[in-house]
Design a binder for these strands. Structure first.
Ligand code: MN
Ligand code: MN
Ligand code: ZN
Ligand code: ZN
Lengths: 130, 130
DNA sequence: TCGAAAATGAAAATCATTTTCATTTTTCTC
DNA sequence: GAGAAAAATGAAAATGATTTTCATTTTCGA
């Protein structure tokens, strides 16, 4: 007989998910900082945050983001509409860009390339900084 | 009277430019490898390659590329038409994508964001791998 | 030719992330 | 519930790309 799916290890993963729910587009160490402040009872290491993130990415619950600043950021993949980002090069504000250029492009390359995913980011000055 | 602009240090920079001319989208260590093989007389260190690259990027002669594989790649900026890239997730082939989604998007965000540059990459399987 | 400024390379430092390894916690079986 | 096996954890070490330091060499201009 099948066992119920294990709930093993879900605690730290849930903590990370909860952190990402509160602090969107966060890095591993930003997530750790948030956990330290809000989950004073639970003791988590940076190693475990990375392990949880890697698992959550592998299971498509979380998406890694690269804004070319030397550290990976993460966002929830759950129920979030597909979107991209605008990053302010002065204050590092990250804004959501609901426009996606993908559909126009997809058709035009489909004969030579089988697309799995795409990256698109705008870098520039946000409303406050320009 | 003005002096002619200094040609100081141009040697290693020229060597790196020449390498990029031959090995497009190369990393710093790939450039060093190429220099070791082809410029047997000239002795270059990885440090100098990085220094030359940083200077060439700062002066817009070379453009850095990030394909999320943990190392920066570089391409010549000179006279190259604006383009993007398709990266094969199986064999790591990098193909040029002459389509650019930027113009369509630029208009729509120009009120809230002052765009300086943008990234766009397609990841998937190339013709050989799919 | 001489001295200042710039360039160079080797080695050390940095920094995000991963790996190792010993210890603790959870799960499964009896 | 006890005890063994499996998985999770954290501290510390390892990794790998890139930068910094620093002592030495090269180049430029007077
Ligand atoms: Mn987002
Ligand atoms: Mn290119
Ligand atoms: Zn800003
Ligand atoms: Zn391929």
């Amino acid at each position: 007989m099948e066992n119920a799916p294990s709930l093993r290890n879900v605690k730290s993963q849930n903590a990370v998910l909860e952190a990402l729910h509160q602090v969107n587009h966060a890095t591993a160490s930003e997530i750790l900082d948030w956990l330290k402040v809000t989950q004073k009872n639970m003791k988590v290491s940076l190693t475990s945050v990375y392990r949880a993130l890697n698992h959550l990415v592998a299971t498509s619950q979380v998406k890694p983001l690269n804004f070319n600043d030397g550290q990976v950021r993460y966002e929830l993949n759950t129920h979030a509409m597909h979107h991209h980002h605008m990053i302010c090069t002065k204050c590092n504000l990250i804004q959501v860009l609901d426009l996606c250029p993908f559909d126009d492009i997809a058709d035009k390359v489909k004969d030579t390339f089988s697309i799995q995913y795409h990256n698109f980011e705008l870098f520039g000055l946000c409303g406050n900084c320009k």
